[in-house]
Simulated scan of single mutants.
Amino acid sequence: MSTWSEFFLITATALVLLAVIQAITFAVGHRIGRYNVVDVSWGLGFVAVAAAAAVLGSGDASRRFLLLALVTVWGLRLTWHMYRKSLGKGEDPRYTEMLERAGGNAVGTVVRKIFVTQGAAQWFVSLPIQVSAVLGPTRGVGTVVLWVGVAAWVIGLSFEAIGDLQLRRFKSDPANRGRVMDRGLWAWTRHPNYFGDATVWWGVWLIAASVWPGVVTVASPAIMTYFLVYATGARLLEQSMSERPGYPEYQQRTSYFVPRPPRSRDPGR
């Protein structure tokens, strides 16, 4: 089988797996009456694609299974976090607003606006994993690029996991009710989890880019970053948070996305 025939087999398998995962997730969401359950299956979809790529690909085995390990750790952690976050809660306001703008929550609208879109995004963002699975070994300067990618993944996962843990502990303290989280990583960026997520996927891309033509999949982390910053992530959250007491002041002293030291709380300094 040629390299690109193998790639088409992997990408077709990925599409089927993602379609099945999204169909099951829709059925669960329809039954419980809230579609934010799609966030729980987000990480699982990438794990499924990485597993298919590792098993079906005949490219460099060490890189295939490295990516499988990294994506599995990231995906399962995120799945567990989103499950705990949404358990016992109502619908995510982002999805409510999205469906209202689209004309209601008819089944066709829900499937198209949420589940098809989510599945397509998973497929596109995971292209570096799919392409890498059919490519030869990493050599020379590519080895440096690969390890820079691993380092970026570690930094990204750390921001995600630590930021989520800090926020969960902050919210669990009744004394913090109504207050804005501005401690730990949240003092350096208003969205450490989204920054971490973007960094994880730039790391995955660098690993794929360590051998030609993996570099051509650069649109995948770029699109992921765009969605996290402008489309469905930080921007929408900022819209809902901006009305909370203390949040405008938090915005003035804390970086929007890329971490940097916080500005002084004293406007006169």
Rank of each mutant, 00 (worst) to 15 (best):
133 A>C: 06
133 A>E: 05
135 L>S: 09
135 L>G: 03
135 L>C: 07
138 T>F: 02
139 R>Y: 01
141 V>H: 00
142 G>H: 03
144 V>K: 02
145 V>C: 01
147 W>F: 10
149 G>A: 05
149 G>M: 05
150 V>G: 00
151 A>G: 14
152 A>F: 15
156 G>Y: 07
157 L>I: 05
158 S>F: 07
159 F>G: 01
160 E>F: 01
162 I>Y: 10
168 R>P: 00
169 R>N: 14
170 F>Y: 15
172 S>T: 08
175 A>W: 05
175 A>Y: 01
176 N>C: 11
178 G>C: 11
185 L>R: 09
187 A>T: 07
187 A>E: 01
189 T>F: 07
189 T>E: 03
190 R>Q: 11
191 H>N: 14
197 D>H: 13
197 D>L: 06
198 A>I: 12
200 V>P: 04
201 W>C: 05
202 W>H: 11
202 W>F: 15
204 V>K: 05
204 V>S: 02
204 V>D: 05
205 W>V: 04
206 L>A: 13
208 A>I: 01
209 A>K: 00
212 W>K: 09
214 G>R: 05
216 V>A: 14
217 T>S: 12
217 T>K: 07
217 T>Y: 08
219 A>R: 07
220 S>E: 04
223 I>N: 06
226 Y>A: 11
227 F>T: 08
227 F>A: 14
227 F>N: 13
228 L>A: 11
232 T>W: 01
233 G>E: 08
236 L>Q: 12
237 L>I: 14
237 L>A: 11
239 Q>C: 00
240 S>Y: 10
241 M>S: 12
244 R>P: 02
244 R>G: 02
248 P>E: 02
